[in-house]
Amino acid sequence: MGSCLSCVDILTALYFEVLRVDIQNPRAIERDRFILSKGHGAPALFQVLAMRGFYPEAWLDNYGVDGGVFAEHPPTPDHLAGIEAATGSLGHGLPIGLGMALAARVQQQRYKVYAVLSDGECNEGSVWESAMLAASQKVSDLCVVVDFNKWQATGRSEEVLALAPLAEKWRAFGWNAVEVDGHDMNALLDAFARFALGGERPTAIIAHTVKGKGVSFMEDDNNWHYRIPTAEEVAKAKIELGVAA
């Protein structure tokens, strides 16, 4: 839950304001691509895709049901409309997204590719391998958003593997990097608008977020990386989030 609440504002900004997608034709070649590289945020993505109209929200009643498609990580694109890549193993989404961006170049398409990574995911060497190739190839249609909630599975991300200075790291790897409040919709949209201006470099948006954002008893408490809320906690969270019936 914590990981979903830290990135859901980013996903909302992307799916409702930024991404050029067609829910009637979800595989249209010219569509923008979005990859939730931090696949453990899947419940947030499933909800946003449903609200955007890729499939009925009622389908989500089958979340976690045996035999269904809504698991704890996104399925492959063949199994759910709107999904571009099956993630869950960290450090895969950016390389796949880079491949999609390079394919656009070969196929003379103009689409853009967005990937949301977690700060813990930046532990993976493949992220930095990918960052270097994107820079050498000047892939300016590629945008990474790091959901920087300062936690990973078992501890503070800065303490597990030293991340700081994260924005400077991306700049040192040849990227444009901007830091924003990842829960400030206007700031996010402004950062995406600057990315869309183009240039020669890929863009990394370091989104400062709060794990469990919006639910007082979850905010910045890493127990909610794994915990499943009780029915009572769900009811309380819904009231705090203003979505209670």
Partner: peptide
């Protein structure tokens, strides 16, 4: 590792 992921992304496209 990145090369293989890039290849998959290209194939998905």
């Amino acid at each position: 590792a990145n090369m293989m992921g890039v290849a998959a992304g290209m194939a998905l496209s």
